[in-house]
Amino acid sequence: MTPVIAVSNLSKTYATGFQALKRINLEIRRGEIFALLGPNGAGKTTLISIVCGIVNPSEGEVLVDGRDIAAHYRTVRSMIGLVPQELTTDAFESVWATTSFSRGLFGRPPNAAHIEKILRALSLWEKKDDRVMTLSGGMKRRLLIAKALSHEPQILFLDEPTAGVDVELRKDMWNIVRALRDSGVTIILTTHYIEEAEEMADRVGVIAKGELLLVEGKEALMRKLGRKQLTLQLRERLAEVPAALAKYRLELNAEGSAVVYTYDTQAERTGITALLDDMGAAGIGFIDLHTDQSSLEDIFVDLVRTTR
């Protein structure tokens, strides 16, 4: 199956001379939720803006549904909806008018039933005749989604959809996104919240300083790069880790009552058996143990550190 979006060797150098994207290669699969994860200034918005036609690329090619975005801009753009990062809305227009405007702009004939359906789904129906400037921040965010969905796009870009949104709204947003995916829309969201990528995405692309560091299925990413930590509660307190165990680089807690062993789940052998054997030989007993999986946060910090 052809990818719904194929980005190849995409670079962007702004007029200031700043290179925001460096030879990005990326394929988005039809119907997935893809999270583009990276810190502020990584180039997420730039990448999205190029695909949507707002920023001109310096080099490279973007195909949407197999078509070049410049040569076939009409077909391509009518397939795409964009929810921008900033709350950029009209002020004096009504919710209904601004949403209908978007549908027309994207080349669709008026369809009051569809607009109504979207406004209801986003809990904006009661506000349909209100001026946009009277809406709260959360409502404006939902209005931007409504505008982006007004022309029934197959692909939806959400640029930091939950930045500055409170916990409750964030959960709402996640539910909206899942419902959209279930209706067959491909979703690309950017975020600098790892928890969001972890919660929402089928696949995650990690981007930093204009480079796409890796693209993985979320689980695979966790598995591949996940470190685990084994914590052993000791039978007797230790003042320090014996020299015989130095090679395991154990961390002793402040009270001396537990040691933490960090291992790589990817490694051929984890070293756990050897550690336990050597501890036995050194006469150190333990009364309990547990393991922790590292979060995407740790993975991310690792990745960004290694690319510096």
């Binding site: 707002i54 009518s78 964009l82 921008p84 950029t88 809305t89 994207f106």
Partner: peptide, 10 residues
């Protein structure tokens, strides 16, 4: 900033 919509439209 609402110009983004015009620029991204077909």
């Amino acid at each position: 900033g609402t110009i983004y919509e015009l620029l991204s439209a077909p």
